[in-house]
Amino acid sequence: MQITIEIPRQLPDIMHCSPGDFEKQAKMAMVAKLYEMGKVSSGMAAQMVGLERVEFLLQLGQYGVAMIDLDKEELHVDLENA
């Protein structure tokens, strides 16, 4: 499936990147948000942007998304089970 989004022609120039780089950044931003919302797994998200899972997780910080988003109780249970 493919999604087409209309953007101002000058947007990549404003962002100081090529149209190809802009496309990659926009795709990563969308997939990072889907991951953050719990709509896709890290493995699925990585596949969607053509990265290995670990590489995807390491890039999340650039998009303001936490690699692991556990509340105190979930973290405590994880530590008990480690």
Rank of each mutant, 00 (worst) to 15 (best):
I3N: 07
I3G: 00
I3S: 03
I3T: 12
T4K: 09
I5S: 04
I5T: 04
I5C: 06
I5G: 04
I5M: 07
E6I: 03
E6C: 02
I7G: 03
P8D: 14
P8K: 09
R9A: 13
Q10S: 11
Q10H: 14
Q10C: 07
L11R: 08
P12V: 00
I14H: 04
M15R: 10
H16I: 07
H16N: 11
H16P: 03
C17M: 14
C17R: 03
D21M: 07
D21E: 15
F22Q: 04
F22Y: 15
E23A: 14
K24H: 12
Q25I: 05
Q25W: 04
A26H: 08
K27V: 13
K27F: 06
K27G: 08
M28A: 12
M30A: 12
M30Q: 10
V31Y: 07
A32D: 11
A32T: 08
K33P: 05
K33V: 01
L34T: 03
L34W: 05
Y35D: 03
M37G: 06
M37E: 15
M37R: 13
V40N: 02
V40H: 01
V40F: 00
S41P: 11
S41W: 06
S41R: 06
S41C: 03
S42A: 13
S42T: 02
S42I: 00
G43T: 04
G43S: 03
A45I: 01
A45S: 09
A46F: 02
A46I: 00
Q47W: 04
Q47M: 02
M48R: 04
V49T: 10
L51P: 14
L51Y: 12
E52Y: 05
E52H: 11
E52N: 09
R53L: 03
V54S: 14
V54R: 14
F56W: 01
L57E: 11
L57I: 02
L57Y: 14
L57P: 00
L57V: 01
L58S: 06
Q59Y: 13
L60F: 10
G61R: 03
Q62C: 03
Q62A: 14
G64K: 02
G64D: 04
A66H: 15
M67Q: 13
M67P: 00
M67T: 08
I68R: 09
L70G: 04
L70F: 13
L70P: 06
K72G: 01
K72Q: 12
E73M: 09
L75T: 07
L75Q: 15
V77L: 08
D78N: 12
L79D: 09
E80G: 06
E80Q: 12
N81T: 10
N81M: 11
A82H: 12
